[in-house]
């Protein structure tokens, strides 16, 4: 994941997004223990203070919770977990729309291209596995 970091966006924000993606696709599940900030820093090759900041922010968003002297865990709050998927879809679409708008493509044509691209690339990935 190291080289995937964007140097112009706060790393802690990227770390939180990474966790949200992992939750959305089911790689990380409700109630699962998460690595310590040192482990996370070492795994993702980031500064430990940044890992700490990401966890603090996730704690505030209710994404993780920590009981004294225990490792932090992913929340089991269904409402929060469901909202993560929506949030990711919304954010991705928003940035896509922002990029495509200046090109002025009619919506039907656009949706057709999106559909072809999405379905075809999805299939390619499956055959690659």
């Amino acid at each position: 994941m190291n080289s995937n970091f964007n140097t112009r966006e706060p790393v802690y924000v990227q770390v939180i997004r990474y966790f949200k993606e992992q939750i959305a696709i089911g790689e990380i599940v409700a109630g699962e223990e998460i690595p310590s900030r040192r482990e996370l820093a070492a795994t993702l090759n980031i500064n430990p203070n940044t890992a700490q900041k990401a966890y603090k922010e996730m704690e505030e968003q209710g994404l993780i919770h920590t009981e004294r002297n225990f490792p932090s865990k992913i929340t089991s709050d269904e409402r929060i977990l469901k909202s993560i998927r929506k949030e990711l879809i919304f954010a991705a679409v928003e940035s896509f729309v922002e990029t495509i708008r200046p090109i002025n493509v009619p919506i039907d044509e656009l949706l057709q291209v999106v559909k072809e691209k999405y379905v075809n690339e999805g299939q390619e990935e499956e055959t690659n596995d």
Partner: peptide, 9 residues
Amino acid sequence: ADVFTSHLI
């Protein structure tokens, strides 16, 4: 660089 992110620091 890995040392910087590890517990050794």
